[in-house]
Design a protein around this nucleic acid. Structure first.
Length: 880
RNA sequence: GGGCGCGUAGCUCAGCGGGAGAGCGCCUGCCUUACAAGCAGGAGGUCGCAGGUUCAAAACCUGCCGCUCCCA
């Protein structure tokens, strides 16, 4: 095998490994071990993946690779979503730009065009997923409009219909005139807007006086069929039951009493427009009021509005107000802010509108979906999202599932043109089941996309057929998504899973953050601040991009993503690359490498320290990943690899590796082992570079590829408690010496002379090994043991057992050294005081935990000794 | 109107009961044969404000201020 190239080049290694893994079938379930399954949140085919997808895909791949290495039967099932409204919106826009429309091209041609679009974008999305490195099982790739999934949708609809949980009826629904379809409540986004409150006088029949009502929508007054007041409102008690004359229209309308009316709002009297306001609609139901529709499906004023017919609602508003003013009915206008509904796909204003639509009765379906979350069968991460879910689910309203679109699952209902009977069946019926007529016409509408998405965790596994996939992989393990679709999707999947399979769709729901731009703004097409993960990958490599996302994936609710931060992790990848090159050079068999078995008794202090530290890192990483705490896992590996392995271990190993003395072969074994284990635990985060390095490592391999190699385990025989603490002390001593070098500006090229002074029975000896580390890592030449501070020396390190001085000769800056000592004394004094203030506090002694007391005692003792010695040094200083 | 989350170093964030951490940026010195995408050293913070609980609060409680977001 070619050695690792001198420079780290992500492009070079990333392209080849994905293909290798895929060709060898490593993404497919192994068929062994307990199952671990993720069904992908299917990206919608209106566009390309953005950084939010990049985050989600990365986290899922980490979970999948981790579990695969743990030996589980792992399946990550990919797919894409047809996204009815959104896709149709894009296609219609394209048609408009070409000067045509969906009605002009017809349903069939429209669908053909849309399929072309879908196929193209699916390809692009899959390509992006591959760039990111996702180990999805492409052979199981699904699309929500696949025949299999179609079947699932029809089965689900028919089942719910015959169970009485799907019904059709004329209700007030959310209408998007731009998309030309009804929307569910969840698809409406409310936004505060600056507007006005118009006060209008409605005169009593046959009298000059009347009631003043306040409204945010004067144009709808044309459709008023009542005025309502609160029954407990004293001001209007005598008015209830009387009749008003609706201005402009001159219709007689009653004054009614309804508890819904807020006496504080406006004048306490509100106009009731049942056909155009959800609250008024409810009032009308209670009082049996008539409906007058004044706005049509394109949001123009209807023919019933006479002179206003054909105007937009905004134009009509202006004209109605003018008319009211000239007729003397306009009392006043106030500034007002109120929430206005907008379409979540096109942002057009939503018009509440009476319409005949299909609904799912949610209450009975919600009950089991609440139970499984309350009982913890389905767990949310972070936990607080559970409450959000439960709040919504416990107040869930019926779900409007029909859409006036062409792109989607056609509603499986055939209306008999003879007897009017709706035939609800999975396949198109030949004859009406009621009258036998063959004159049947299918419902024009399609289903809400989220209806099919709700079936995703089992429809993708083959349902309604009883497939072996369904048997093996349902319930799935993890569902990873953003909080903004908890209602749309997570909730519906749980509902559908419970209804159709009788079991939860997944045991864990991981809610990741929303990726914003570096200024904290949501990424959007209109702002043009979206980032394509491919661009980042091309600039920094997929491994660095993934790692940056993983380390940012904390429990907060959003990430401000500054692409520049990826640089840090590209540097990390580079560090990994170069450390590996260094290791490989020293492991090269031609360079004398043979057996790589580790002999604990031959381990140096550094060997023991790094092995012990590796144990910790393996344990932490494993725990964090099991809890989906990706950021902590990434951070612990980063710190271990850079700050411990590279900064200290490799440096400590150099003298041994370069020389011929010492346990060279054992150190080689340790080096190889630590690197091997490191790239294993790093693999889920940085799959490409770790695979490349691992393939080069001359270590025993249980698998042909790192992606299916076993996950590391802690080794109790590598705990090395004693070696570890000695090495850690050494680090402090070396830092002290380096510190002085920098402070006194001794050039790195000049070797230092240091003197040791030992106190007490412990630490009187200096291991030859420790000395070697100090020489090499602090660039020290001569070492002396003294019984008092040498002349012209500065103090590098002081603790209760030893002092280290650096002999500086004429270069010493006496004043600087004195100040440094004093500063050190001050610091130690503060430490001591802090510990003593606890120990001298009877309340602390009485209440604090034993551990806290013990710790304070240790600190006080240590600080006291150190302080004594520092003070002696300072005294010497003046007498010297 | 109801609710979630967040205010910690210049920037981005971690820490969420026993004297404050990271990365980037900044300053100083180094091309030391794995890495200048690097090495060594350093500066920088009344942890939003005010009370309270506790022997002990950045962390827990209450209120306030500011910023997001969700629901009505």
């Amino acid at each position: 095998m070619e050695p690792l190239s001198k420079a780290y080049d992500p492009q070079g290694i990333e392209s080849k490994w994905y293909a290798t893994w895929k060709e060898n079938g490593y993404f497919k379930p192994s068929g062994k071990g307990e199952p671990f399954t993720i069904v992908i949140p299917p990206p919608n085919i209106t566009g390309k993946l953005h950084m939010g997808h990049g985050l989600n895909m990365t986290l899922q791949d980490i979970a999948i690779r981790f579990n695969r290495m743990l030996g589980k039967n792992t399946l990550w099932l990919p797919g894409e979503d047809h996204a009815g409204i959104a896709t149709q919106g894009v296609i219609e826009k394209n048609l408009r730009e070409k000067g045509t429309s969906r009605d002009a091209v017809g349903r069939e041609e429209f669908l053909r065009i849309t399929w072309d679009w879908a196929n193209e974008y699916r390809k692009h999305i899959k390509n992006q997923i591959e760039w990111i490195g996702c180990s999805v099982d492409w052979e199981r790739d699904r699309f929500t409009l696949d025949e299999g999934l179609n079947h699932a949708v029809r089965r689900a609809f028919v089942h719910l219909y015959h169970k009485g949980l799907i019904y059709k009826g004329k209700y007030l629904v959310n209408w998007c005139s731009r998309c030309g379809t009804v929307l569910s409540d969840e698809e409406v986004e409310h936004e505060e807007e600056k507007s006005h409150l118009w006060y209008i006088l409605y005169p009593l029949k046959g009298e000059k006086l009347g009631l003043t009502v306040a409204t945010t929508r004067p144009e709808t007054m044309l459709g008023d069929t009542a005025v309502a007041v609160n029954p407990s409102d004293e001001r209007y008690r005598d008015w209830i039951g009387k009749t008003l004359i609706l201005p402009i229209v001159n219709r007689e309308i009653p004054i009614i009493a309804d508890h819904f009316v807020d006496p504080q709002f406006g004048t306490g009297a509100v106009k009731v427009t049942p056909a155009h306001d959800p609250n008024d609609y409810q009032i009308a139901l209670r009082h049996n009021l008539p409906y007058v529709e004044v706005i049509d499906e394109r949001s123009y004023m209807s023919p019933e509005t006479g002179v206003f017919a054909g105007l937009t609602t905004l134009e009509a508003r202006k004209r109605v107000v003018e008319r009211l003013e000239s007729d003397g009915f306009l009392v006043k206008i106030e500034d007002y802010r109120h929430a206005v509904g907008h379409c979540y796909r096109c942002s057009a204003t939503i018009e509440p509108r009476l319409s005949d639509q299909w609904f799912v009765k949610m209450k009975p379906l919600a009950a089991p979906a609440i139970e499984v979350v309350e009982s913890g069968k389905v767990k949310f991460h972070p936990d607080r999202w559970k409450k959000v879910y439960l709040n919504w689910m416990s107040e869930v309203r019926d779900w409007c599932i029909s859409r006036q679109l062409w792109w989607g699952h056609r509603i499986p209902v055939w209306y008999c043109q003879d007897c009017g009977h709706p035939n609800v069946t999975e396949e198109a019926p030949e004859r009406c089941e009621k009258c036998g007529s063959s004159f049947l016409i299918q419902d024009d509408d399609v289903l809400d996309t989220w209806f099919s998405s709700g079936l995703w965790p089992f429809s993708t596994l083959g349902w309604p057929d009883q497939t072996s996939d369904l048997e093996s992989f349902y319930p799935t393990s993890l569902l990873s998504t953003a909080f903004d679709i908890i209602f749309f999707w997570v909730a519906r999947m749980i509902v559908m899973g419970m209804e159709f399979i009788g079991d939860i769709p997944f045991s864990d729901v991981y809610i990741h953050q929303l990726v914003r731009d570096k200024k904290g703004r949501k990424m959007s097409k209109s702002l043009g601040n979206g980032i394509d993960p491919i661009e980042v990958i091309q600039a920094y490599g997929a491994d660095a991009t993934r790692f940056s996302l993983a380390i940012l994936a904390s429990q907060g609710s959003d990430i401000r993503y500054d692409v520049k931060s990826v640089e840090t992790y590209q540097h990390f990848a580079n560090k990994l690359w170069n450390a590996s090159r260094f290791a490989l050079m020293n492991l090269d068999p031609s360079n004398g490498g043979a057996s790589l078995a580790i002999h604990p008794d031959q381990c140096t202090l550094a060997d023991g320290w790094i092995l012990s530290s590796l144990n910790d890192t393996i344990r932490k990483t494993t725990d964090f990943l099991s809890r989906y705490e990706y950021n902590f896992a990434a951070k612990s590996i980063y710190e271990f690899f850079w700050n411990q392995f590279c900064d200290w271990y490799l440096e400590s190993a150099k003298p041994i590796l370069y020389g011929d003395s010492g346990p060279k072969q054992n150190t080689r074994a340790v080096l190889a082992y630590v690197l091997d284990q490191s790239v294993r635990i790093l693999h889920p985060f940085m799959p490409f570079i770790t695979e490349e390095i691992w393939q080069h490592l001359p270590v025993p391999k249980e698998a042909p590829s790192l992606i299916i190699a076993p996950w590391p385990e802690e080794r109790p025989e590598y705990a090395f408690v004693e070696k570890r603490s000695r090495y850690e002390a050494l680090i402090e001593e070396i830092r002290g010496i380096r510190n002085l070098r920098a402070q006194f500006q001794v050039p790195p090229s000049r070797k230092l002379t240091v003197a040791f002074r030992f106190l007490g029975e412990s630490g009187t000896a200096l291991l030859e090994e420790e000395l070697a580390y100090i020489r090499f890592l602090a660039n020290v030449e001569e070492v002396a043991v003294v019984d008092r501070k040498p002349e012209k020396s500065a103090t590098a390190f002081v603790d209760s057992s030893r002092e280290i001085y650096v002999i500086l000769g004429e270069t010493i800056d006496w004043e600087g050294e004195r100040q440094r000592l004093e500063k050190e004394i001050d610091k130690t004094r503060v430490d001591l005081q802090h510990a003593l203030s606890k120990l001298n506090n009877p309340k602390f002694m009485a209440h604090a935990e034993a551990e806290a007391v013990e710790e304070a005692q240790l600190k006080a003792e240590e600080a006291k000794k150190t302080l004594q010695r520092l003070e002696l040094l300072l005294k010497d200083f003046f007498t010297a």
